[in-house]
Protein backbone atom coordinates (compact mmCIF):
# COMPACT_ATOMS: atom_id res chain seq x y z
CA UNK A 1 0.00 0.00 0.00
CA UNK A 2 1.28 3.39 -0.97
CA UNK A 3 1.22 6.31 1.39
CA UNK A 4 -0.59 9.38 0.17
CA UNK A 5 1.38 12.59 0.22
CA UNK A 6 0.24 15.12 2.80
CA UNK A 7 -1.42 18.03 1.03
CA UNK A 8 -3.23 21.26 1.77
CA UNK A 9 -6.52 19.41 1.25
CA UNK A 10 -5.72 17.46 4.40
CA UNK A 11 -5.31 20.68 6.34
CA UNK A 12 -8.70 21.76 5.01
CA UNK A 13 -10.19 18.49 6.25
CA UNK A 14 -8.68 19.15 9.67
CA UNK A 15 -10.08 22.67 9.69
CA UNK A 16 -13.48 21.15 9.14
CA UNK A 17 -12.72 19.00 12.19
CA UNK A 18 -11.87 22.15 14.14
CA UNK A 19 -15.37 23.46 13.45
CA UNK A 20 -16.91 20.29 14.86
CA UNK A 21 -14.62 20.43 17.87
CA UNK A 22 -15.80 23.97 18.52
CA UNK A 23 -19.44 22.99 17.98
CA UNK A 24 -19.22 20.08 20.39
CA UNK A 25 -17.38 22.23 22.95
CA UNK A 26 -20.08 24.89 22.75
CA UNK A 27 -22.80 22.27 23.08
CA UNK A 28 -21.10 20.67 26.08
CA UNK A 29 -20.43 24.00 27.74
CA UNK A 30 -23.93 25.44 27.29
CA UNK A 31 -25.87 22.35 28.32
CA UNK A 32 -23.29 21.40 30.94
CA UNK A 33 -23.53 24.94 32.30
CA UNK A 34 -27.31 24.80 32.57
CA UNK A 35 -27.24 21.38 34.26
CA UNK A 36 -24.27 22.40 36.38
CA UNK A 37 -26.11 25.47 37.64
CA UNK A 38 -28.99 23.25 38.72
CA UNK A 39 -26.65 20.83 40.47
CA UNK A 40 -24.87 23.76 42.15
CA UNK A 41 -28.23 24.92 43.59
CA UNK A 42 -28.79 21.41 44.93
CA UNK A 43 -25.29 21.40 46.45
CA UNK A 44 -26.09 24.54 48.50
CA UNK A 45 -29.64 23.45 49.35
CA UNK A 46 -31.09 24.08 52.79
CA UNK A 47 -31.88 20.39 53.11
CA UNK A 48 -29.08 18.17 54.25
CA UNK A 49 -30.36 15.13 52.37
CA UNK A 50 -30.39 17.03 49.06
CA UNK A 51 -26.88 18.36 49.70
CA UNK A 52 -25.53 14.90 50.45
CA UNK A 53 -27.33 13.22 47.55
CA UNK A 54 -26.01 15.77 45.05
CA UNK A 55 -22.53 15.51 46.56
CA UNK A 56 -22.58 11.75 46.03
CA UNK A 57 -23.71 12.11 42.43
CA UNK A 58 -21.00 14.68 41.68
CA UNK A 59 -18.33 12.50 43.30
CA UNK A 60 -19.46 9.51 41.25
CA UNK A 61 -19.27 11.41 37.97
CA UNK A 62 -15.88 12.84 38.90
CA UNK A 63 -14.61 9.38 39.84
CA UNK A 64 -15.29 7.84 36.42
CA UNK A 65 -13.19 8.58 33.33
CA UNK A 66 -14.97 10.64 30.67
CA UNK A 67 -14.13 7.89 28.19
CA UNK A 68 -16.11 5.35 30.22
CA UNK A 69 -19.03 7.80 30.61
CA UNK A 70 -18.92 8.25 26.86
CA UNK A 71 -19.05 4.51 26.15
CA UNK A 72 -21.77 3.97 28.75
CA UNK A 73 -23.91 6.74 27.22
CA UNK A 74 -23.25 5.53 23.70
CA UNK A 75 -24.16 1.91 24.39
CA UNK A 76 -26.72 2.84 27.04
CA UNK A 77 -28.79 5.01 24.72
CA UNK A 78 -28.43 2.27 22.13
CA UNK A 79 -30.25 -0.32 24.20
CA UNK A 80 -33.23 1.95 24.63
CA UNK A 81 -33.72 1.46 20.93
CA UNK A 82 -32.44 4.87 19.86
CA UNK A 83 -30.14 4.92 16.92
CA UNK A 84 -27.79 7.44 18.50
CA UNK A 85 -25.88 9.81 16.32
CA UNK A 86 -22.30 10.11 17.62
CA UNK A 87 -22.74 13.83 18.25
CA UNK A 88 -25.71 13.15 20.55
CA UNK A 89 -23.85 10.50 22.53
CA UNK A 90 -20.76 12.70 22.77
CA UNK A 91 -22.86 15.77 23.63
CA UNK A 92 -24.74 13.99 26.43
CA UNK A 93 -21.57 12.49 27.92
CA UNK A 94 -19.73 15.81 27.77
CA UNK A 95 -22.74 17.53 29.33
CA UNK A 96 -22.77 15.14 32.30
CA UNK A 97 -19.02 15.57 32.74
CA UNK A 98 -19.04 19.38 32.49
CA UNK A 99 -22.07 19.69 34.75
CA UNK A 100 -20.33 17.84 37.57
CA UNK A 101 -17.18 19.96 37.38
CA UNK A 102 -18.92 23.31 36.81
CA UNK A 103 -21.26 22.64 39.74
CA UNK A 104 -18.28 22.18 42.06
CA UNK A 105 -16.45 25.23 40.70
CA UNK A 106 -19.49 27.44 41.09
CA UNK A 107 -20.37 26.09 44.53
CA UNK A 108 -16.90 27.12 45.65
CA UNK A 109 -17.53 30.63 44.31
CA UNK A 110 -20.91 30.93 46.03
CA UNK A 111 -19.40 29.79 49.31
CA UNK A 112 -16.57 32.27 48.91
CA UNK A 113 -19.07 35.11 49.21
CA UNK A 114 -18.89 36.23 52.86
CA UNK A 115 -21.55 34.68 55.08
CA UNK A 116 -22.51 38.09 56.37
CA UNK A 117 -23.95 38.87 52.94
CA UNK A 118 -26.45 36.03 53.40
CA UNK A 119 -27.27 37.30 56.87
CA UNK A 120 -27.71 40.88 55.73
CA UNK A 121 -30.01 39.72 52.94
CA UNK A 122 -32.03 37.83 55.50
CA UNK A 123 -32.26 40.92 57.70
CA UNK A 124 -33.72 42.78 54.73
CA UNK A 125 -36.44 40.13 54.63
CA UNK A 126 -35.37 38.82 51.23
CA UNK A 127 -36.50 35.28 50.54
CA UNK A 128 -33.78 32.73 50.00
CA UNK A 129 -34.25 32.82 46.24
CA UNK A 130 -34.23 36.65 46.20
CA UNK A 131 -31.11 36.70 48.34
CA UNK A 132 -29.39 34.33 45.93
CA UNK A 133 -30.49 36.17 42.84
CA UNK A 134 -29.97 39.75 44.00
CA UNK A 135 -27.14 39.52 46.50
CA UNK A 136 -25.12 36.34 46.33
CA UNK A 137 -25.01 35.28 42.68
CA UNK A 138 -23.92 38.67 41.29
CA UNK A 139 -20.95 38.60 43.65
CA UNK A 140 -20.22 34.93 43.04
CA UNK A 141 -20.42 35.54 39.30
CA UNK A 142 -17.42 37.85 39.45
CA UNK A 143 -15.39 35.21 41.26
CA UNK A 144 -16.59 32.48 38.92
CA UNK A 145 -15.46 33.92 35.60
CA UNK A 146 -11.72 33.08 35.72
CA UNK A 147 -12.11 29.41 36.77
CA UNK A 148 -15.01 28.96 34.35
CA UNK A 149 -12.93 30.23 31.43
CA UNK A 150 -10.16 27.92 32.65
CA UNK A 151 -12.57 25.01 32.58
CA UNK A 152 -13.51 25.81 28.97
CA UNK A 153 -9.96 24.75 28.07
CA UNK A 154 -10.68 21.44 29.77
CA UNK A 155 -13.90 21.06 27.78
CA UNK A 156 -12.21 21.73 24.43
CA UNK A 157 -9.48 19.22 25.21
CA UNK A 158 -11.99 16.61 26.37
CA UNK A 159 -13.92 16.76 23.10
CA UNK A 160 -10.97 14.88 21.57
CA UNK A 161 -12.37 11.76 23.26
CA UNK A 162 -15.53 11.99 21.14
CA UNK A 163 -13.39 10.57 18.34
CA UNK A 164 -13.80 7.10 19.88
CA UNK A 165 -17.50 6.87 19.02
CA UNK A 166 -16.76 7.88 15.45
CA UNK A 167 -17.56 11.57 15.70
CA UNK A 168 -15.32 13.27 13.16
CA UNK A 169 -13.91 16.21 15.08
CA UNK A 170 -10.30 17.37 14.97
CA UNK A 171 -8.71 14.29 16.57
CA UNK A 172 -10.71 11.83 14.45
CA UNK A 173 -9.91 13.84 11.33
CA UNK A 174 -6.22 13.68 12.20
CA UNK A 175 -6.46 9.92 12.79
CA UNK A 176 -8.12 9.37 9.42
CA UNK A 177 -5.45 11.41 7.64
CA UNK A 178 -2.70 9.64 9.54
CA UNK A 179 -4.07 6.29 8.40
CA UNK A 180 -3.56 7.23 4.78
CA UNK A 181 -0.43 9.41 4.90
CA UNK A 182 1.57 7.76 7.73
CA UNK A 183 3.10 11.15 8.54
CA UNK A 184 2.27 10.90 12.22
CA UNK A 185 4.50 13.62 13.65
CA UNK A 186 3.27 16.09 11.05
CA UNK A 187 -0.42 15.20 11.25
CA UNK A 188 -0.71 15.06 15.04
CA UNK A 189 1.63 18.03 15.35
CA UNK A 190 -0.73 20.11 13.23
CA UNK A 191 -3.76 18.82 15.13
CA UNK A 192 -2.01 19.72 18.39
CA UNK A 193 -1.25 23.17 17.04
CA UNK A 194 -4.93 23.70 16.22
CA UNK A 195 -5.91 22.68 19.76
CA UNK A 196 -3.24 24.98 21.13
CA UNK A 197 -4.57 27.84 19.00
CA UNK A 198 -8.02 27.36 20.54
CA UNK A 199 -6.97 26.69 24.13
CA UNK A 200 -4.05 28.98 24.74
CA UNK A 201 -5.98 32.24 24.30
CA UNK A 202 -8.58 30.92 26.74
CA UNK A 203 -5.86 30.01 29.27
CA UNK A 204 -4.24 33.41 28.90
CA UNK A 205 -7.60 35.15 29.24
CA UNK A 206 -8.39 33.17 32.37
CA UNK A 207 -5.06 34.21 33.92
CA UNK A 208 -5.63 37.86 33.07
CA UNK A 209 -9.11 37.78 34.59
CA UNK A 210 -7.72 36.20 37.72
CA UNK A 211 -5.06 38.87 38.08
CA UNK A 212 -7.67 41.60 37.70
CA UNK A 213 -9.81 39.97 40.35
CA UNK A 214 -6.97 39.93 42.86
CA UNK A 215 -6.06 43.58 42.21
CA UNK A 216 -9.45 44.62 43.55
CA UNK A 217 -8.93 42.77 46.79
CA UNK A 218 -5.83 44.46 48.12
Amino acid sequence: MLAQPFTLAHVGYMLNGVLWTLALSALAFVFGGIAGFGVMLLRISRFRAVRIASLVVVQIVQGIPLLVILFAVYFGLGIFGFQVAPIIAAGVAMMIYSAAFLAEIWRGCVEAVPRTQFEAAECLALTRWEALRKVILPQAFRLAIPPTVGFMVQVVKSTSLASVVGFVELTRAAQIINNSTFQSFLVFGIAGAFYFAICWPLSAWSRTLERKLHVGRH
Partner: peptide
Protein backbone atom coordinates in the same frame (compact mmCIF):
# COMPACT_ATOMS: atom_id res chain seq x y z
CA UNK B 1 1.10 20.25 27.27
CA UNK B 2 -1.61 22.05 29.22
CA UNK B 3 -3.27 23.38 26.08
CA UNK B 4 -3.42 20.21 23.99
CA UNK B 5 -5.44 17.04 24.64
CA UNK B 6 -3.78 13.99 26.15
CA UNK B 7 -5.11 11.84 23.31
CA UNK B 8 -3.20 13.92 20.74
CA UNK B 9 -0.03 13.76 22.85
CA UNK B 10 -0.42 9.99 23.08
CA UNK B 11 -0.89 9.60 19.31
CA UNK B 12 1.98 11.98 18.64
CA UNK B 13 4.36 9.93 20.78
CA UNK B 14 3.14 6.44 19.87
CA UNK B 15 2.48 6.79 16.14
CA UNK B 16 5.14 9.44 15.66
Amino acid sequence: VRNTPFLIQLFFIYFG
